[in-house]
Every structure is written in structure tokens, then in C-alpha cells.
Design a protein around this nucleic acid. Structure first.
Lengths: 136, 136
DNA sequence: GTTTATGCAAATTCTTTGCAATACT
DNA sequence: AGTATTGCAAAGAATTTGCATAAAC
């Protein structure tokens, strides 16, 4: 079972309240979160800087990844730990233009893409913009 | 033929040096550019603020579009004026992890994607990360 | 006890806004 | 001439850095 604690332990990171709370937040809401979302949620519990540093630590450790966003804001989401076998490097996200939420569509898989001569692919991210079920 | 001048005219925008130079820069280099790239290139010719405003004007007029980037920097690229028929709302970009350049892969087309129940798509952007022909 | 994370202050970078001067049509 | 754009100064976000204190192992 995946818990904030187990995630930190498996990455050999110290267990602190801020880290636990941030991971918990990602687990609870299955959407991509920006620094500002976390700051708002964990209001006054942790310093703004600590949240930045925590996010950067998690990025380095591949606990979270950046989610592309058209608005300019940097958003993050948990890397999926289910299919951990080889970190599948394929991200499909949906951003609702009404509520602004970005969700990971883990169940959607990208068909193979043919790239022009000479290009070598290592990772792919698809961002779909539109209307989500809640807002539709 | 597409020239900086013709682009501005067809969008009913006034013809100014800054606008001409920025469009020219996009035409010359077929890559996505960040504000900082333009600032560097047009060094001391125009104010930083003017470049920001020009980019925003072009965005509103659909002369350029934002290109997703994993680095956090906002990048822009010209909208393709060839297949102008209905602004096809499908963007495929390739970012080389070695030289950092992002290019539009106009020749690559996304196969139709099946979204889960309730999601309605309006636009899609694919970012492929890897190695480009020059760096490969 | 040693190492690492946190909080606070402050520095940097990125982006927007207001307003007078300038350039475009 | 009338309107939109530019440059400059300044304000406001977003993000990073340094250092002493506090917490984790």
C-alpha cells in the first residue's frame, strides 16, 4: 500500500510533517497542484519557501513530475507508483478550461507516434484541453 | 507569401519595428522562443516590457501560441499560416534535451485519442522529449 | 551527536501596470 | 489629427539563496 510514509522511506528521505502533508494532499486530490494550491491548503502551517524546497526535492527524487500547463503556472502531480516497473514516461493530462483542474488520465495511453528521421524520443506528455465531466 | 508585414496587416495591427523584428525572428528560426530569447536577440533594441506586450498582443490575435515546456519557461511559436482553414488546434512539439531547442513538428499528426466518459476535448498539445537530429 | 530540513529575511527573476512621449495610419 | 504603441519607472508575482534554529536519524 502506498502511503506518504512509505514513499518517503523508499526514497530515503527524512520524514517531516511538511513532506507528509504535501504527499497526502497529492494522494487525496487526484489533480495536478501548483505551489499556490499547496500554500493555500496548508495555510500557515509551513513556510512558502519550505513548500518550494519540498517540491524541488520531490522532483529530483521522481516522486512528483511537472505537469504541462498552458497558463504558465507550474503544476505537479505524483508519479504513478502502481506501474513502477519502468517508470513509463508517458503522461496524459486533461485540463478543464472551466474549473481549471488538471487531472492525470492514467487510463489513456498514447498510440506510438512516428517521428521524422533523426529524432529520438525519450518521454512524451500530452495535454488535452476541454471540458471535464463535472463541468460538462 | 508570408512576411512579417503581411501577418500584421491581415490581423489589422499597426506595423512597428518591434513587431516586425519579433515575427521575423520566429520565421528565421523555426523553433519556439521564450521572452528571454527574444530579449537577447533584439538586445537593447526594444524595452523588455515592449517585448512582453508584443507577445501578449500576438497571443490574443492568434499569431503565436504558447508552447508547452517542461522547464517552466514560457515559450511561444508562430501559428502555422499554411493550413489556416480552420486553425487546427493540434500542436506537436519536440524538445531536445541536449540543445534545449523546441521545434514544431507540423508533419506529425496525432491519432484520435479516446477520452474517458464525460470529457470533451477542444485542443491538444503533445510534447515529445528526446534528442534531435543535430544532437543525435 | 551529526546531518538534514525549516523559517525568516532578503535577493533575483518574471511579468504586469500607469503614464507621458512617440510613432503609426 | 487621432489613436495605438513604446519606454521608463515602479509595482506585484514567482522562485531562489543564506544563515541560524530546530528537528530527524
Amino acid at each position: 500500500m502506498v502511503t506518504p510514509r512509505s514513499i518517503l522511506k523508499s526514497h530515503k528521505l527524512r520524514i517531516t510533517d511538511c513532506r507528509l502533508d504535501i504527499i497526502q494532499e497529492f494522494l487525496d486530490r487526484q489533480v495536478a497542484l501548483a505551489h499556490s494550491d499547496l500554500e493555500e491548503k496548508l495555510q500557515n502551517q509551513f513556510d512558502r519557501v519550505t513548500i518550494y524546497r519540498t517540491l524541488n526535492t520531490f522532483l529530483e527524487q521522481d516522486i512528483i513530475h511537472k505537469v504541462l500547463d498552458d497558463s504558465g503556472a507550474t503544476k505537479y502531480a505524483l508519479c504513478s507508483f502502481e506501474d513502477d516497473h519502468e517508470h513509463d514516461h508517458e503522461h496524459v493530462h486533461f485540463k478543464c478550461e472551466i474549473c481549471g483542474e488538471t487531472t492525470c488520465l492514467d487510463e489513456v495511453h498514447l498510440p506510438p507516434i512516428k517521428l521524422p528521421q533523426g529524432y529520438k524520443k525519450r518521454d512524451m506528455s500530452l495535454l488535452v484541453l476541454g471540458t471535464c465531466p463535472k463541468c460538462g
